[in-house]
Simulated assay, not measured.
Amino acid sequence: MTATDPAAGASAIPLASDFEAATREQWLALVDKAIKGADFEKKLVTRTADGIRVEPIYTRATANEGQQSALPGQAPFTRGASAAVEGLGWEIRQGIRATDPARANTEILTELNGGSNGVLLEIEAPGQAGCRITSAADMKTALSGMRLDLA
Rank of each mutant, 00 (worst) to 15 (best):
I92F: 00
G118N: 04
T106L: 03
S144T: 11
R147W: 09
L88I: 12
R53N: 06
G114V: 04
S116N: 00
N64D: 15
A102Y: 03
R147G: 02
A142C: 02
Q94P: 04
G114A: 15
A102N: 01
R47Y: 15
D149Q: 00
S82E: 01
T110N: 10
G51S: 00
G80W: 00
S11Q: 04
E111A: 14
A104I: 09
I96Q: 05
D18A: 14
A10H: 06
D5W: 15
A83E: 13
P56F: 04
I13Y: 08
G87R: 06
A70H: 01
A22G: 07
Q128S: 12
A98T: 06
T106K: 07
D39E: 08
V54D: 10
A142V: 03
A29F: 13
A3K: 10
G66M: 07
T62R: 12
T141A: 01
L44T: 03
S17L: 03
D138H: 11
T46M: 09
T106S: 12
R79K: 15
I123W: 14
E91Q: 15
G145E: 01
T59D: 06
T141Q: 07
D138L: 01
A129S: 07
L121K: 02
A8M: 01
A12L: 14
R53E: 10
D39N: 15
D32K: 15
L112Q: 07
A8S: 12
A98K: 14
L15Y: 10
I13T: 13
V85L: 13
A136D: 06
R79S: 10
L15D: 05
G145Q: 06
I35H: 15
G115Q: 02
A34N: 09
F77Y: 15
K43A: 14
P72R: 08
A63L: 07
F40C: 04
A129M: 11
Q128A: 14
A10G: 09
A12G: 05
N113D: 13
N113I: 12
A38R: 08
L150V: 10
E91H: 12
E107C: 06
G114T: 04
E86P: 05
F19W: 09
G37K: 14
D50N: 10
G73K: 07
A98I: 08
W27K: 03
K43M: 09
E41Q: 12
K33I: 01
E86K: 09
T23V: 11
V85R: 07
A61P: 08
G115H: 00
L121C: 03
P6V: 05
V45N: 03
R24C: 08
A12C: 01
N105T: 04
K36I: 04
A8Y: 09
